[in-house]
Design a protein around this nucleic acid. Structure first.
Length: 168
DNA sequence: TAGGCCATCTGGTCCT
DNA sequence: AGGACCAGATGGCCTA
């Protein structure tokens, strides 16, 4: 049975304590159903607040590929002749696409993790940690539902938050 | 201005 | 052989 102790012992590093605190806020949101309101794409915004649509935050800062010249990075080992250079450029494009896919997945994950309005967009690391915490909390909740379902106090369990989410 | 976070490039390795 | 995946390096942007 996933216990509170398990959640509390999850963090190995002191600096992650703030995350833990967020997690408790998160749990409070779950219990108060308040998270439903913030559970959407608009719940997070770019740090600069300039991106109105989360998806658009994925728009890459494009290097000047029109000239076939990669943006200046590292030691410029890219000074290769024709075919090799072309393959490198193609590989770069694939890698960019891959990373965009990964970032899209992160955004989708963020969108289902409850967060406070006006809160800074979660970093990738924080997103993973919060997702882990969230899943643990939901599992506990589910365990509670199952247990209490056998009793007569099932209506005290916030089943509604699941119904609300499913109906979205 | 330092530090955090991120996007991108790059070369290496693994897989199909 | 070519694509996917990965990790290191680098530079830009933002915030405290």
């Amino acid at each position: 049975m996933a216990s509170k102790a398990e959640v509390l012992s999850w963090t190995e590093y002191p600096e992650e304590f703030s995350l833990l605190q967020q997690a408790h806020t998160l749990q409070a949101q779950i219990n108060s159903k308040a998270w439903v309101a913030s559970n959407s794409l608009h719940a997070f915004s770019r740090r600069d607040g300039s991106s109105e649509t989360p998806g658009l935050s994925l728009v890459p800062k494009l290097p000047d590929l029109s000239s076939g010249i990669p943006h200046q990075n590292k030691a410029d080992t890219g000074a290769k002749p024709g075919p090799q250079r072309h393959r490198r450029v193609a590989a770069n494009a694939r890698e960019r696409r891959r990373m965009h896919g990964l970032n899209k997945a992160f955004d989708e994950l963020r969108s289902v993790i409850p967060s406070l309005e006006n809160e800074k967009k979660l970093s990738k690391y924080d997103t993973l940690q919060m997702a882990q915490i969230y899943i643990t909390e939901l599992s506990e909740l589910l365990t509670g539902v199952v247990h209490q379902d056998c009793g007569s106090t099932a209506d005290k369990v916030p089943i509604r938050i699941f119904r609300i989410q499913y109906s979205n």
